[in-house]
Design a protein around this nucleic acid. Structure first.
Lengths: 175, 175
DNA sequence: AGGGTCATGTAACGCGTTACATGATTAC
DNA sequence: GTAATCATGTAACGCGTTACATGACCCT
């Protein structure tokens, strides 16, 4: 992919899992190329405009597979919303309920989006999945699609649980 | 609290929600004092050792209450574990199952700790809650304890859902 | 001719991580 | 005396955010 492709990539479904701002893409591509993890090919896109398409090198692929295969420590938690919720007793109950309402809307939107993406994956209806499956045994296609769909199913389920939890919080505030 | 108190504070139950490394505490205290959000009092702790105890100023309290009372945009997601899970098809199924196993253990440990803390809060059995309640109407004590306990109940529930989801993932890998 | 998209960058600032570093006081 | 705890800092480095900045190409 080119830097520009990656910007759009992180704006799409991958963005539910890992966000990356445009300003980080280009410096990071150069650092990764220097480290030998990816290599760039210049492509002409008109007389004056070029784009650089990067590919993962064998070294980069090896490091990725190694990283994928071992468990990593969880990142230290940093959850501003829970800090808010822990201190709802400091503010007006109506304000707290409104904060929860916004949280519920956000979680249900996230859940709906994750569910929609899960279903697209099950139908093998996304460009990225189709492209990946071309290099795989057709016997495995069903299994791979279900594995990837399961990830988005998990994201959706967590969001639903959080929304339900927030609704209970609203009931507690009314007491 | 003093800087040292805060280091231990973030190592305790608050650490499930917001972690802060020791190296950030002291510079941040000075920046917050400069901003007028907190003020420090020097206390002698022996002939040569002093500690600085910080209190929230009215300005700091006001900003906190204002922040607590409005909904904030969610932080962009950045979930390394989900990146792993999305690419389990690139690695050996046994390795993937082992990564999930570690995840399950971690989530169940987190859930158990959150549940234990929830129950301590319901029994009003934590130093911080007791201290906070001294400045509140006894009629509200039950309600406040239940609100705070509900936060940890939510953390526990999410962790249980994640663990159950990971177990399903292990079953999918076996196919 | 103009707007939308393609394409690539830079700069400033703050936060988070890891590691290093020092010394006083208390309890055994 | 010595180990644990109390107490406070600094430095280097990378990542993330916001904002700024430029220009080519394509379609109507």
């Amino acid at each position: 992919m080119s830097g520009y492709d990656l910007v759009r990539f992180f704006d799409g479904s991958t963005g539910w899992i890992w966000a990356a701002p445009q300003s980080q893409i280009y410096p990071m591509l150069r650092r990764m190329e220097q480290a030998g993890l990816i290599s760039g090919d210049e492509e002409a896109r008109g007389p004056r405009l070029t784009r650089t398409v990067y590919s993962v090198t064998p070294k980069g692929h090896g490091e990725l597979v190694a990283w994928l295969g071992v468990a990593h420590d969880a990142a230290p938690p940093r959850d501003p919303f829970m800090v808010q919720a822990l201190n709802f007793d400091m503010i007006d109950a109506g304000d707290a309920a409104a904060v929860l309402e916004a949280f519920i809307a956000e979680q249900e939107k996230a859940a709906a989006e994750a569910e929609a993406h899960r279903d697209r994956l099950l139908r093998r209806d996304t460009a990225l999945l189709k492209e990946r499956l071309t290099r795989r045994d057709p016997e495995d296609h069903e299994r791979i699609a279900r594995l990837k769909a399961h990830v988005f199913d998990g994201i959706a389920r967590v969001a639903r649980v959080r929304a339900e939890w927030a609704r209970e919080g609203q009931r507690l505030l009314e007491e």
